[in-house]
Design a protein around this nucleic acid. Structure first.
Length: 168
DNA sequence: ATAAATCACAACG
DNA sequence: CGTTGTGATTTAT
């Protein structure tokens, strides 16, 4: 962990619960799952700027749409400051995945230009700070098997099920 | 700054 | 089914 860029945390209500969105000055920096309790009671540091409120609205809409299996037409600016170029490339590739579809790690690797970096892609997915919006859960292994998932494999399964994706 | 260990995969024997 | 081949991130010298 480098320096803490002081983020503003706001709750986002969705059909799956209340997510916690962490905004920086540049945009949406991180998204946390409904923790159920006040662990992230982080009290929004301070004011919510006008654009930040816009981001909040966009985030909420996007989350609800994605959870409903529909494409998120508009997304708030994502702040990936501090992350590596490789990770950003991977996540950008993930955003291109259509709802209800799945891609393998190999496909993602090929998309970003390093067909052999499948393992690195896995690592990048694990480092993804914004689940659901960046559909890291839509990425399966080559033979349609679920690898793993940060913070609970069952959660990933639920997400896939939400989009009508059936696992063999 | 360099080097070793780790990882949410894939291909091959 | 165990082994090897890959690329990047993280942790330890």
């Amino acid at each position: 962990m480098k320096t803490k860029p002081q983020l503003v945390s706001l709750p986002v209500k969705t059909i799956a619960g209340e997510f916690i969105a962490h905004y920086s000055d540049k945009g949406l920096a991180e998204l946390d799952w409904p923790v159920g309790r006040a662990s992230s009671r982080t009290v929004a540091k301070k004011i919510e700027s006008a654009k930040m409120r816009t981001w909040q609205r966009l985030t909420e809409t996007a989350l609800q749409r994605v959870l409903a299996g529909k494409p998120a037409a508009k997304l708030p600016p994502l702040d990936w400051t501090g992350k590596t170029e490789f990770q950003q490339s991977v996540w950008r590739a993930l955003l291109k995945i259509a709802p209800g579809k799945t891609r393998s790690y190999g496909e993602i690797a090929a998309t970003i230009g390093n067909p052999k970096a499948v393992r690195a892609v896995g690592g990048a997915c694990g480092a993804n700070p914004i689940p659901v919006i960046v559909p890291c859960h839509r990425v399966l292994a080559a033979n349609r098997k679920i690898g793993g998932f940060s913070g609970g494999l069952e959660r990933k399964r639920s997400l896939l099920e939400c989009e009508g994706i059936v696992l063999s």
